[in-house]
């Protein structure tokens, strides 16, 4: 498996650290109901199909990446940097 890092280009999967579903990017707002925190922390889908996960380019640029891939075909569909999106959200 290879991931095409937006900064480093096509790299071997072993250069990356896997973190899990991109739900971690959608932290509930302060005062959100307990169910929202439950979803954020514990509840994950296990799709047979497209899923979006967080990967860290440990042996390369040191950036967090959001990777869209298909768990059935193993196709990697998109690799995006997390930081620019997160920064934009932070500025709002």
């Amino acid at each position: 498996m290879r991931l095409t890092c937006p900064l480093c280009g096509e790299r071997d999967r072993r250069e990356f650290y896997y973190y899990g579903a991109d739900d971690y990017l959608r932290r509930p707002a302060e005062g959100a109901p307990a169910a929202a925190w439950d979803d954020y922390l514990h509840n994950r889908d296990n799709p047979a199909g497209e899923t979006r996960d967080l990967w860290y380019h440990e042996a390369g640029c040191g950036q967090w990446l959001a990777v869209m891939r298909n768990t059935v075909t193993h196709a990697v569909l998109a690799v995006d940097l997390v930081a620019p999106v997160a920064q934009k959200r932070g500025r709002k």
Binding site: C8, R11, A59, G60
Partner: peptide, 10 residues
């Protein structure tokens, strides 16, 4: 240039 691992070294 590339940031990459030389063996196991950054």
């Amino acid at each position: 240039a590339a940031r990459a691992a030389l063996g196991h070294m950054s």
